[in-house]
Design a protein around this nucleic acid. Structure first.
Lengths: 147, 147
DNA sequence: CCTATTTCAGGGGTACTGACATCG
DNA sequence: CCGATGTCAGTAACCCTGAAATAG
């Protein structure tokens, strides 16, 4: 059959499409590089470490995660002994999520994996260009938060 | 509880995370703006128009779509009378996908919706900055194709 | 009353895998 | 035999909705 697989002009430089295609590619690589962790797991461990003991709702807001997904990811991590879920003393609705020693070790390992992933995914970009990309995306995201 | 919802430092400027979060945001807006069409539908209509009658496999490659998803999207569009699926005369395995007049009208409508979506999503960016973003993403994607 | 937290059940769009029959 | 095409069934990760029970 034909050997021409040129992308449609309309799509080739369509920013929204480029964004979603690139994101799909990146998610794929990240999923592989994270082993048996998901991005939500990493986000939650990182937030728990940086914020210290917090409620699930606070962690979810910090990570931009839905409450439902916080529950599921917390279940996973607690089952693996990477964090503890205790009833909050002052508020009987909420839990206090605390990182365990194993959780800290796992987080350090994930930090290293994530660092390597950035280098692998954004290999074609210079340091400056990665910063550019970061800034551009941050502004688009901030626009969402303000709408 | 606390009013601090500051994103974890590790995540705040992590390029892969920014990329996926921005993509999620964009996909939501696009899904709304496209009405009862999906991005695959638009991609297929655009490819069919620009390439003329083609096989499903060729359209799928042009759009970076999986063959399975081409089948599903083609079913939808054919059921709505926006394209025809005829057996290929020279190759009894494959079909020839042809845009109908209704399909062309739908495509023109979608073109306009998509154009407006770019302006809405990337409102905080100047023309130059959108081009920058496009170029950066294109290079990351090209890196995938070459790996 | 109204809001907030946790939890569950489930759906939706996207990307993909594996299998199959068909055909070149 | 190998590879390509179309089709189908099903999975995976992520994002989201709705509802419920509980509690501030």
């Amino acid at each position: 059959m034909p050997m021409d697989e040129a992308p449609p002009l309309r799509l080739r430089r369509l920013p929204t499409r480029l964004l979603t295609q690139t994101a799909a590619h990146v998610q794929r690589l990240v999923a592989q590089g994270l082993g048996d962790f998901r991005t939500h797991h990493y986000a939650l461990l990182a937030a728990a470490e940086e914020r210290g003991p917090s409620s699930q709702a606070a962690l979810g807001r910090a990570c931009g995660m839905d409450r439902s997904d916080v529950v599921a990811a917390t279940n996973d991590l607690a089952a693996r002994g990477l964090l503890r879920r205790d009833p909050a003393p002052g508020d009987r609705r909420s839990n206090v999520i605390t990182l365990t020693a194993d959780g800290e070790n796992a987080l350090r390992d994930l930090d290293e994996r994530v660092r390597r992933l950035q280098d692998s995914v954004f290999a074609p970009l210079s340091e400056d260009e990665r910063d550019q990309l970061t800034r551009l995306l941050t502004r688009v995201l901030r626009h969402r938060a303000e709408s």
